[in-house]
Design a protein around this nucleic acid. Sequence first.
DNA 1: TGTCCACGTTGACACAGATCAAAGCTCCCC
DNA 2: GGGGAGCTTTGATCTGTGTCAACGTGGACA
Lengths: 245, 245
Amino acid sequence: MHAQVGHLSVASLREACSQCNLRELCLPMGLTESELGQLDELVNVRKRILRGQHLYRGGDVFEAIYAIKTGFFKTDVLLEDGRDQVTGFQMAGEILGLDGIGSEKHTCNAIALEDSEVCVIPFTDLEDYSREIGALQHHFHKVMSREIVRDHGVMMLLGIMRAEERLAAFLLNLSQRFTARGYSPTEFNLRMTRNEIGSYLGLKLETVSRAFSRFQDEGLITVHQKHIQILDVAGLKKLLSERRV
Amino acid sequence: MHAQVGHLSVASLREACSQCNLRELCLPMGLTESELGQLDELVNVRKRILRGQHLYRGGDVFEAIYAIKTGFFKTDVLLEDGRDQVTGFQMAGEILGLDGIGSEKHTCNAIALEDSEVCVIPFTDLEDYSREIGALQHHFHKVMSREIVRDHGVMMLLGIMRAEERLAAFLLNLSQRFTARGYSPTEFNLRMTRNEIGSYLGLKLETVSRAFSRFQDEGLITVHQKHIQILDVAGLKKLLSERRV
DNA sequence: TGTCCACGTTGACACAGATCAAAGCTCCCC
DNA sequence: GGGGAGCTTTGATCTGTGTCAACGTGGACA
């Protein structure tokens, strides 16, 4: 498909962390110029993952974490009986693979939802560098901690919110993350199917579809396939805060 | 209640990590003797938390993480509308407070479910030490990663399991953690109420109660108030793996 | 240009778990 | 040792979401 090898080495030089336009979102956040230069040595391999392909699978040996340079991923966990749960959707600047550190094996699958490129960060190297660079160490800890807080947020979704609240929270979260990346807060394309949204939100795809339709009827959003336009951000937020008993 | 000050300083000397019987479960795991000695300098303040008291609250400034020396905690998150969700139950040897690193504020409440004692680990000190001691650094990363994996497990509970599966998973998880601490795998006292179990599992307390009763009727466990005896571990596990459509 | 296929929408009905209600148990405190 | 508060159990009923089914839609590809 792509002349990978040739392109990669060139890309490595030209697109190191110090030049990356995601450096304020991604792992290098808060580093000085010279520290950034050191990072360029750490993160010098990139990997292209086509839509539908796995970046890693549950059970794979853990060797590296991955920073998403471009593209969009989902992570999911499979139960033996075939049921599965999407545990997250990740976009540019976010880190994949943190689940694998504890057991030295990946504990979920990471699958590209569109053609994507990730920066490979060998984990022992990261630990070595972060013993040298305090700011890197600290930022890495923050990244992990935020992942825990994010998971707590999902637990709230799943534990106490009703279907429409879950979907509203989901849309607002996407909106906020797109905004942070310089995209429109109110208009975007979903990269995942209704089924994947449902799996993430603990709902069936029909329920997701109905909630989208209801939001549209109420003038909160417009939906055309995967294209979403948020018409009434405040209205969505109100759905979250007001408990109609 | 307790003559805290006097006791604490004595306790500090006698109950440092190197002497602690939890050292194989807790943060010091995998350190050498001399590294353990260094840890004793890091972790030298303990704090007693009586039942019902907060170790920290959501919004508190984050300064330290805590290793549970004795006792039992829950963590929960409150929504503005008054709903709340228990995000975890923690026992001896487990670490509290990791959620606060990312935002420099705690993002949940940690409440003692019985009189407890925690070791205070000032976070900047921990980062300093773990830049010196590679094994400490690595183990800390594992602890954080495992917290993420644990949260994914809860997401599975909440996202795709039915009520009885959730409760079975909960009991088996407790059993396994008690076992690791040298207690009986099959007989223990719950420290939390039905309501707290329900909040953790995304169920109402009546549903939890009914599920306990059903398990008892089926001969899987006996329940007397908070005292649980597991009669049929395999039966509980079967509940998890077999999907009756 | 037509056909196929995965994905999405909508409707009808079923059911797991929520809600409401009442009564029992235990432990604590006076 | 009596009273009460908090917790738990159990029953009756309600309801949000799941399930099943039919149909619609748009993009890929021959």
